[in-house]
Design a protein around this nucleic acid. Structure first.
Lengths: 183, 183
DNA sequence: GGTTGCATGTAAAACGTTACATGATTTT
DNA sequence: AAAATCATGTAACGTTTTACATGCAACC
């Protein structure tokens, strides 16, 4: 069976521990979301496919009376995960409308460029802030988390967004300086 | 008419100057590609839609005997572009399989984390290199280019990818240090 | 005369999001 | 009693990629 990129991400999540589809969604939203999102519309159908392919085993496991289906990797699923992790990464995509607007901003003059840079700066500053919140709340739980490779990606997100925000800020200042010199 | 995100990018390209679909594709590939890609499968149908909506005007303009259709913005197209540029950016997406592999790499032990970090580093180093090549070849053409907002995004791409590559390198070193201390 | 590049286009498939539907349970 | 949260799922839609098809022109 051909696995879709997102079904591999799901496999990875189940490699951390057995989980329900709902829990996968919550975990994604609080961890990989900023570089790999997933919606219910993907998660549930993919879990079904993975189950049919024998890569995960799904059992009803109601917690406190509530209906709940827990999925866990089968040995075949573990192997598929291992194989995927061993292969070189392929997907590196970005869709950044703010960069696109900066790119075209000559069309609206200097002001438009500054506004577009500021919008981008604000976005990255906000995202860095959100990731910091996640980071500190996770840090409270245990030291073992700050040792995990998952924590690495969180630190990466913070560092990258800080860098992007600062870069925009510097460019705004540079353009201001140029503007007054030119005038 | 509802414009798709990519048709707005096409509008922006035509705001730079009138162009054929083929030229749009080439320009995208050598400029916005790393943060906004577009394929023929999008460009040609979208140009048709934009033309039907009266936002671009398409005329046959064979250059040196070769069939060629040049598209240019109509006043309505210019306005649509201006309106879009004035609105806050919405799409900021990333799909980074290398980060995903780092995230899950505990599953393969320390070596796997190091390998995933190295793969990511290599990717960013390569991309930075490619962008630098574009940058220097563009710089030769004229000083006016280095003044354009389009050039800003190129510098951003170089700075960001340099930063990402260096971040990975630092983390590899840190993990090595930890490893030997622990051993 | 063959390869590369210019140039336009389409069809099918893959991928992903959004919105909706349903219903139970816990909290306020 | 109402609101929020847990929990599963699907259908429709929109977007994007991939692969293919076509043909002329310029260059070697």
């Amino acid at each position: 069976m051909e696995l879709s990129p997102t079904s591999r991400a799901i496999l990875g999540m189940l490699g951390l521990e057995p989980m329900s589809g709902y829990e996968i969604k919550r975990l994604v939203d609080s961890s990989t979301r900023f570089f790999w999102a997933a919606s219910y519309g993907q998660i549930y159908p993919e879990l079904k496919r993975l189950s049919e392919a024998g890569l995960v085993e799904s059992t009803e496991d109601p917690q406190s009376g509530r209906r709940r289906i827990v999925h866990r990797l089968t040995p075949a699923g573990e192997q598929a995960l291992r194989e995927w992790l061993a292969q070189p990464p392929e997907i590196q995509e970005m869709r950044d409308e703010s960069l696109l607007k900066i790119f075209f901003s000559d069309f609206g003059g200097r002001e438009a460029t500054l506004a577009a840079l500021e919008a981008k700066r604000a976005h990255h500053a906000e995202l860095a802030e959100r990731l910091r919140t996640i980071s500190t709340s996770a840090g409270k739980e245990a030291a073992k988390i700050s040792d995990s490779s998952a924590y690495l990606t969180l630190r990466y997100g913070i560092a990258l967004n800080d860098f992007a925000a600062e870069w925009c800020e510097r460019e705004v200042e540079r353009l201001h300086g140029e503007g007054s010199r030119a005038a």
